[in-house]
Write a protein that binds this DNA or RNA. Sequence first.
DNA 1: GCCATTGGAGAGTAGCACTATCTAATATTG
DNA 2: CAATATTAGATAGTGCTACTCTCCAATGGC
Lengths: 221, 221
Amino acid sequence: MRISELAAASGVAVPTIKYYLREGLLPPGRATSATQASYDESHLQRLRLVRSLVEVGGLPLAKVRAVLDVLADPAPAPYTAVSDALAALPPYVVETPPFVRATSALDEIGLAYDPTSSAIAQLEAALAGLEAAGRPLDAAALGRYAAQIMVIARREVDAVEAQRDPEVPAELADVVEDIVLGTILVEPVILALRRLIHAALFRERHQGDSAAGDQKPAASR
Amino acid sequence: MRISELAAASGVAVPTIKYYLREGLLPPGRATSATQASYDESHLQRLRLVRSLVEVGGLPLAKVRAVLDVLADPAPAPYTAVSDALAALPPYVVETPPFVRATSALDEIGLAYDPTSSAIAQLEAALAGLEAAGRPLDAAALGRYAAQIMVIARREVDAVEAQRDPEVPAELADVVEDIVLGTILVEPVILALRRLIHAALFRERHQGDSAAGDQKPAASR
DNA sequence: GCCATTGGAGAGTAGCACTATCTAATATTG
DNA sequence: CAATATTAGATAGTGCTACTCTCCAATGGC
């Protein structure tokens, strides 16, 4: 495959592909002459991965590179490799330990956690943001969220395990890629569903309100 | 309150506050002389709202302005006003109708939706991203997500209703602000919990793997 | 043989969110 | 009341990101 074909197949402009090559986000093609190189399926797949991370996940290229680095050379222990990769995913918070809001709430609801994980910092930042906006979330409410999410998460983890052939030991890079993509690509699905369901419930309860078009809006909530 | 006090109280630098004033994200203070103006609680609260949207929600300032515009002058019909405000929240997708993946899946799982809402476009983009990455999500799986999220969303909607005094008709701007903040600030909580629970489940199943530190990593998944 | 394409590299661009600097007027403090 | 600090308001500049443009010389395909 030549660069123009790779561009056509991926929907990414040739100059952008060249830029990714320069930046090391895409490995160079196999050089067939001084002015020609050929690309294969692996390049197309890598390009799709990069674009997914950027467009769906909203990662800056520097973070994409961090994810790719972990895939290329994962830490030897699975948990560490996965943590490394997940730490490169947004949101990027500046919060510094101790994460009192997050850890005390999690302790209260009895959820085990790794106090150094990036998700703790994210939770802390989110809880702090709610507090700053005057809408604090207490541990009980957090626990109710956690209970529902546990159902979702358990099913997801089971699905990952189920689709693997237990006879074939998985490559760690594949596991990490699965988890990173499962994390980053499914998140917008969950959020979109939440918004859609909110909208459906809201409309259900305000059916009459909008029909008139421009009646005085204050009533009914 | 003088600008320096407002800066101290909010943690936002004076030049940044001036910038927000110029950009119309913050209403001007009450001028007490040619070179002095005084700010009050409402300015502090507005500043906190802006910073929450920017820092926790990750909104660009242009979108913050769109949200504030809706708060200042909401469409007369509640549903329209809320949709307008939610359309300003990320993620910002470029997808154009028809949203076949999203609508056909939602039809199949029997969830009513507004085909013009931004959440539909987000769902379409997310499903397309999963497909591009070779991990398509079918309607059945989507339905299982929706079932759990329905539980969460229903509780959230009930909570909003419960905290309002039914005797006092709500201002539409307040309702919109509630929903916008409830949407944007709670989303990171949900995502952080999902990641934390994934990590907990993952560690549970890989307890031995990481202990040795640098054994060959391929096994066990 | 000849025109389009390519690899490679540097420079340029657009958008965003500030940040710096300046001026003239006013407030505060010793 | 004089000296110092602060302020509103405005313009210009900065740092960063993610491309996008432009060139060049060397092919590749018709």
